[in-house]
Write a protein that binds this DNA or RNA. Structure first.
Lengths: 333, 333
DNA sequence: TTGTACGCGTTATCAT
DNA sequence: ATGATAACGCGTACAA
């Protein structure tokens, strides 16, 4: 690996000063056209590329952002990450990806590490930290987009981006009620998850408004994966065999629920209707295809990145965005 | 966002020189114990964290690596990325994630961008560039782990990490032959994919060795996703209705094949046996569960990261690693 | 239009 | 054990 050429090398080769080369490269005024051409030719020839570390030190801009997710393996976050990365590429930014693995220590480590690296901005999904810690961290970064978390007091350099979970859950329940279901259960996600709380709230309020009572026995918590959804459904259906519909925290849980129903000989959607959330690719792969609340996750990722760039550039930007999920009725409900 | 404190701030507060603080922080010798203690206390109090950009400029080490994948949304690469990130976290490295989206331009852009950022190392999956370009790029980085690509002439700072695709495909074909199948088709992946070529080779050689002829009509190309697998299977079964087994390039394709069979009323595994490759989570979610060649992708990611660190630290390291897939017999074959 | 001096925050080197 | 000084590669501010 031979030494990288620097501005000084180019300047020497071109017989001009450092600054002239710098200006030529950054297409700034103050360089005659022919000189610029010959410099750029040299740059090409010598394979020069600006050293972003040095540039970062001088300008306090690194052209990189951090993306914190619980687990990039989860299709939900994978899609978002893809959108973020696409958006970053379009604007010549690089993305540091970090998984928290639902581990508070690792989450704080990630924040510290990103801060040390002087990222220009941060997209932070499902922040699991206490409010005080959250505010401390937000203060440290120049720009932040918070996904899946809300903020009482808006900060000018922070935008929150949330799915309208309450409305989504209500749409699902309405649909089930319309199909004649009267014993609708809810497989909730982790209690500390804001989405889980909001979806629960939507579920309960829809039932109440329909004149049905909210029955704690119809609510069952589980981790947001297929295996947990399966187990939770067995528990649920054992406790309340009269259940005729299940709203699941997300699609993975819904699929687990579907498998459990099949294992118990309860056909879907004939005896139990199932609705998921998020519309991950799996939703259309399994049989019967999953009715679910569709959210364009990749687009959300791109939106988040664009908003982040807007904040960084001082462009006016809303303090919060709310994404409306859409009920995609397929075969499971 | 208030100004970050710097070494100078700490030094001033402690009434010592910059270097003493630097030494204390980096736990280098040359600082008395009590002084070190009091400095570290100040560091804590003032919330000081070293600026990695400045440090990077001074040391030419950034404590960050690049990870290039075709698409982080593909479970195959998502698992690998997760392993890489876990490994990086364990050693206090950060990971730049880049998607190439099978786009050569974007792949080159990614390499350029990572080089500008002075990453200490690179994990490069499924490099799609020509040999000459590959060698040029490899020369630019201090350390590289190449996944899914081989190298004629080993380089001391590069390691290749491949799955033994040939052996995997042969195991699959053997298994199918043992089940009595005699018209085994192969749904190949993209032609430019090295894995696809190797799996094809394993498929063909296993047939030949069993005394069966290789029939081009039994080979069908498709993109490595479910929809393409579905379409390709329709084409294939239309052309050769006598097919009694399908080996798919990967699990996504296999699932598409399974759906196509079901759509055509051909039961799996009774009339058509199907085997996939990679064993992504989906393999055990669908019904019937997929028989497939299992590879521990997350572990591969960790291995890649560890090897990369070894290269970077000058630790002796093999020039190539070959991972053996294992046939997991489930319900589809 | 072009060039010079300096600073960004840190580490390496050489003194003390 | 501690400190002064010079890099690292670039951009900003100002001078020519």
């Amino acid at each position: 690996m031979k030494r990288r050429s620097t501005l000084a090398d180019i300047a020497a080769a071109a017989g001009v000063s450092l600054m002239t080369v710098s200006r030529a490269i950054n297409s700034k005024p103050g360089v005659s056209d022919e000189l610029r051409q010959s410099i750029l030719a040299l740059v090409e020839e010598m394979g020069y590329r600006p050293n972003q570390i040095a540039r970062g030190l001088a300008t306090h801009q690194t052209n990189s952002v951090g993306l914190i997710v619980p687990d990039n393996t989860n299709p939900f976050f994978a899609q978002i990450a893809r959108g973020v990365e696409d958006g970053a590429y379009a604007r010549e930014y690089s993305v540091f990806l970090v998984n928290t693995v639902e581990n508070p220590t690792r989450e704080l480590d990630a924040l510290g590490s990103l801060w040390e690296k002087e990222v220009d901005g941060l997209i932070w999904c499902s922040a699991r930290v206490a409010l005080e810690e959250l505010e401390f961290q937000l203060r440290r970064f120049p720009a932040v987009v918070l996904l899946n978390r809300e903020l009482e007091n808006p900060l000018s350099h922070v935008m929150t981006l949330n799915v309208h979970d309450v409305r989504g859950a209500r749409m699902a329940v309405s649909h089930l009620l319309g199909q004649g279901c009267r014993h609708i259960a809810y497989l909730n996600g982790p209690l500390h998850s804001l989405s889980a709380q909001r979806r629960l709230q939507g579920y309960q309020s829809a039932l109440t408004e329909a004149g049905l009572s909210v029955d704690p026995l119809l609510e069952q918590c589980c981790l947001p994966d297929t295996a947990s959804g399966y187990d939770a459904t067995l528990v649920l259906l054992n406790r309340r065999p009269d259940v005729d519909a299940i709203l699941a925290f997300n699609d993975l849980v819904a699929v687990g629920a579907m498998q459990a129903c099949q294992a118990l000989g309860r056909s879907v959607p004939e005896t139990v209707r199932i609705i998921g959330f998020d519309d991950i690719p799996l939703a259309t792969i399994i049989e019967p295809q999953l009715t679910t609340l569709h959210v364009d996750l990749q687009h959300i990722g791109e939106l988040a990145m664009q908003a982040l760039l807007d904040i960084m550039e001082g462009v006016a930007c809303p303090s919060a965005m709310l994404i409306e999920p859409e009920l995609f009725v397929r075969d499971s409900a």
